[in-house]
């Protein structure tokens, strides 16, 4: 007899992982990993461009596989797991993107905004609820504000109809005490479940995720082998093993989870996610992990130290989706360098 699941795992391998390969995941890769994830019993499998639905762009990167193909392929290969999508208003619109995604068989819609801009999610959340979908609100770059303001924004999402709120450490900047403080306060403020999405820039992804669960979070995100933006996400197979050892139940079969992770390593990853020197800088500077590839490219083009670009982006408090600003910052730093400043 299976025990009741008390930590709900949502797996963004095929969404956040897309950042790590400049959004080049193929239909075959999506199909293969979905089959393995489904066999392992992963409850929610998130699929799409790194910035989610409707985000294939020159700004962030053009996706090799369009939303329709990616989502239909995933749907066909997920007989049991729920199919999730990441949706950022400002990139994805209801008419152009969300309505179609529903036709492709999406079950869980994670509507995201920068941590201070929850009111941008109102129409998208209400639309999904009205269409009978499971909806989570997602607050990205949550390290940029304190617990009170974060709870206020989360509360708006709850009022719009979100059934859970997930906070993202998009820059991999948190230490466990930061996580505990925020999760504690969210649980005091909200009457819906709370989740956590980590990045591993400072090597804290598993530890921060465990801290979140111990504080009462009941939804955790993790990717196979940590496949995700920048230094990667919480390594899912490790997280599941640790959760099980602690006595939590995820409904995931560990052996098959490990098989899925091995498969991801062989089939999806170009390079093993690692904490590179510039990932440490990006985490410290509190800059969106997804910028990593862009910063590396522009540092080369403009002959700059990528660490200087990251710290300047951090100083300007750039948020997710502002990849164009990396061009501006790089060209400015290059001009300063040329002027001998």
């Amino acid at each position: 007899m299976s025990k009741a699941v008390n930590v709900l795992i949502s797996d963004p391998t095929l969404r956040d992982g897309n950042h790590a390969v400049s959004h080049q995941l193929t239909r075959e890769q999506i199909a293969t990993y979905c089959r393995a994830a489904d066999k392992a019993g992963i409850p929610i499998v998130e699929v799409g461009h790194g910035n989610g639905l409707g985000a294939s762009s020159l700004q962030v990167g053009l996706a090799r596989t369009d939303d329709e193909t990616a989502l239909r392929t995933a749907r066909e290969n997920l007989p049991n797991s729920k199919l999730g999508i990441h949706v950022i208003p400002g990139f994805a619109t209801i008419e152009r993107d969300l309505k179609r995604a529903m036709d492709y068989g999406v079950d869980v819609v994670r509507v995201a905004s920068h941590c201070t801009e929850a009111d941008l999610t109102e129409r998208h959340i209400r639309f999904c609820r009205a269409n009978g979908k499971t909806v989570f609100g997602v607050l990205m770059m949550s390290h940029m504000i304190g617990k009170d303001m974060l709870a206020e924004e989360a509360r708006k999402m709850e009022n719009y109809g979100a059934e859970a709120v997930v906070i993202m450490d998009s820059a991999g900047n948190y230490l466990p005490s930061d996580v505990k403080e925020r999760i504690d306060h969210l649980l005091e403020t909200l009457s819906i479940p709370v989740g956590f999405h980590a990045h591993n820039n400072l090597g804290m992804a598993v530890a921060n995720s465990i801290t979140a669960v111990e504080a009462g979070a009941t939804i955790l995100d993790g990717s196979a082998r940590g496949f995700g933006a920048g230094a990667g996400n919480t390594q899912l197979e490790v997280l599941v093993a640790v959760l099980h050892r602690m006595g939590f139940e995820t409904g995931i079969d560990l052996y098959r989870m490990l098989d899925a992770a091995d498969l991801a390593e062989g089939e999806l990853l170009k390079e093993h996610p690692r904490i590179s020197s510039i990932s440490v800088v990006s985490g410290l500077a509190g800059v969106f992990s997804g910028f990593s590839k862009h910063v590396q490219r522009l540092a080369q083009e403009f002959d700059l130290d990528p660490r200087d670009i990251f710290f300047e982006l951090g100083r300007r408090r750039i948020v997710a989706g502002q990849e164009d600003l990396i061009i501006e910052v790089s060209s400015e730093l290059a001009a300063q360098k040329k002027a001998g400043l």
């Binding site: 762009s57 020159l58 700004q59 400002g90 990139f91 920068h114 201070t116 801009e117 941008l120 940029m144 300007r316 408090r317 750039i318 948020v319 989706g321 502002q322 164009d324 600003l325 061009i327 501006e328």
Partner: peptide, 23 residues
């Protein structure tokens, strides 16, 4: 064509900025 809008809460407030990309 595609349009994207980003709201940035940085303080002091950022000036409006628009980037045009063309292939």
């Amino acid at each position: 064509t595609k349009a994207i809008l980003i709201l940035n809460p940085a303080v002091p407030c950022i000036d409006m900025q628009t980037t045009i990309f063309a292939a």
